[in-house]
Amino acid sequence: MSELFTIFISMALVNNFILVKFLGLCPFFGVSKKLGSALSMSAAVTFVMVAASAATWLINNYILIPFGVEYMNIVMYILIIASLVQIIELFIRRTNFALYNVFGIYLALITTNCAVLGITLINTNEAFSFIESMVAALGAGVGFTLVLAIMSGIRERLELADSPKAMKGLPIAFITATMLGLAFSGFGGIV
């Protein structure tokens, strides 16, 4: 149990996907201007990360490893993630249209989000068990959500702030990310 907790904290805070591992930066700089859309986006990413970790774990351990074709994992994982996202999108559209309206549009973007492929590759490299992969994916998703939410709040203020002309927009967002990254590096000692 404590091992699972360690994995969770390590993924969410110490090795934060956005600030430390630089995974999923496109939504971080792209959609993070409004808190509402940032939360919907990160909910969708978290959900897909957990589902993709489960699917790729099963494929890796029951197909790729027994047949000795682990080197095919990049191609396989991308195909699994792409088809999984399609299935989830179809399923949500049929069963819960309100939910589809909230994060359906983000689902299509998630296929090429490096955070999703990243977590599946990390699970494989670390040789996590099924439960450990789930917890790692959930932790990574929570860390992603946390940073996206903090950043969207800051960027709403930044829009109105009187920053130097050359700094407006993307550069100041990078500098803000530096500060956030420094703050998060304070978590370094806890695991």
């Binding site: 130097p164 550069p171 990310a177 500060m179 990254g181 590096s185």
Partner: peptide, 17 residues
């Protein structure tokens, strides 16, 4: 360290602008 990457890219972007 990782925050340094954000800092360098942010400053370079601002400089180019």
């Amino acid at each position: 360290l990782s925050p340094g990457a954000f800092l360098v890219i942010g400053l370079l972007l601002a400089l180019f602008r």
